[in-house]
């Protein structure tokens, strides 16, 4: 399984509650029935253990292992209450799945009755198998949703009837927000991928936007990134309200940088950024006025491979 799959599972076990995954039509037995009857219940339902319930509440748990013990020893009584494990550990239906998984892991339990908080009545059961089944189901749903999204979006241009179609995406970038630097570029890349844009094209657009986005973060109070996707090209407009570039020619010189140390420590500010944007685009125009701001326009043609 890939990293996203594992990440998704981790997310799910913290997000889902025991009640979301438990088996609801739980088979239970009364403590007073005989061990002979228990044997039949296990055999008929092809299960290896059942919760023992009295007046709806959990009073014990009995498994095939207890049945074997009874068959070999045949001592003491012959009702379920004589052989069951008392003081059963239960989980509440509103507890997170991680709680149940920890109990299975640390205590080695095979099954856990699930009870509701108010009257402590048994409402379901969880086993390792039930948890695995539900996680796989959730992941499958997620996978299908992404597939459908991709399919729908990749046919977007074909499905829309118009003389000309343009998809516009607008993002705001906060100045100084280093922690989120690159989020816009990452989101645009994801969207372009879903639109079935060629890898070489979306990669160039993403790199150019990434550099522009980092410039907004490092040198301005923030700005806006607009992306216009047409069947023949992708146009990107990045604008801010200052401080502006005194000499664009200077700024375009490889290695020219006004970056402070904190920017350099993050691995940027080496005077390569604007060149990178130029290299990735088919057309680049910078208009900058000191004190008023900078407007950067980039075009990447769809057919330039």
């Amino acid at each position: 399984m890939n990293n996203a799959g594992i990440g998704k599972i981790q997310e799910l076990i913290y997000d889902l509650s025991v009640g979301d995954v438990m088996k609801k039509d739980v088979i239970s037995i009364s403590p007073d029935i005989s061990m002979y009857k228990l044997k039949e219940v296990l055999r008929k339902n092809r299960i290896s253990g059942v919760p023992v319930v009295k007046n709806g509440c959990s009073v014990g748990i009995i498994s095939i292992e207890d049945l074997i013990n009874w068959l070999t020893k045949k001592s003491a009584g012959s009702s379920v209450k004589d052989w069951m494990t008392k003081n059963v550990v239960t989980v509440y239906e509103d507890e997170k799945l991680i709680q149940a998984i920890s109990l299975f892991d640390q205590k080695g339990y095979g099954r856990l009755p699930v009870v509701e908080r108010k009257e402590k009545k048994v409402v379901g059961i969880v086993t390792k198998g039930v948890i695995i089944e539900s996680l796989l189901r959730e992941i499958e749903i997620d996978y299908h949703e992404e597939e459908i999204r991709r399919y729908r979006m990749s046919h977007f241009f074909e499905d829309v009837t118009a003389d000309s179609v343009t998809i516009g995406l607008i993002y705001q970038v906060k100045g100084g927000d280093v922690m989120n630097g690159g989020t816009v570029a990452g989101n645009i890349k994801k969207t372009l991928k879903r639109l079935d844009i060629k890898p070489d094209i979306y990669r160039r657009v993403a790199i150019a936007i990434y550099e522009a986005e980092m410039n907004l973060i490092f040198y301005t109070d923030g700005g806006e990134v607009s992306v216009y996707i047409k069947p023949e090209s992708i146009c990107v407009n990045v604008r801010d309200h200052g401080p502006g570039i005194p000499d664009v020619k200077d700024a375009l010189r490889l290695g020219f940088s006004t970056a402070p140390n904190w920017v350099r420590e993050l691995g940027f500010g080496a005077g390569i950024g604007l060149n990178n944007i130029q290299r990735c685009s088919d057309k680049m125009i910078i208009n900058s006025t000191v004190g008023r701001g900078t407007i950067l326009d980039i075009t990447v043609n769809m057919d330039t491979l």
Partner: peptide
């Protein structure tokens, strides 16, 4: 291969595939 360990390294890797 890099000596930087901040999240920007991952963001950079992500946009560059």
């Amino acid at each position: 291969l890099t000596g930087l360990t901040n999240p920007q390294v991952v963001r950079t890797a992500d946009v560059a595939e």
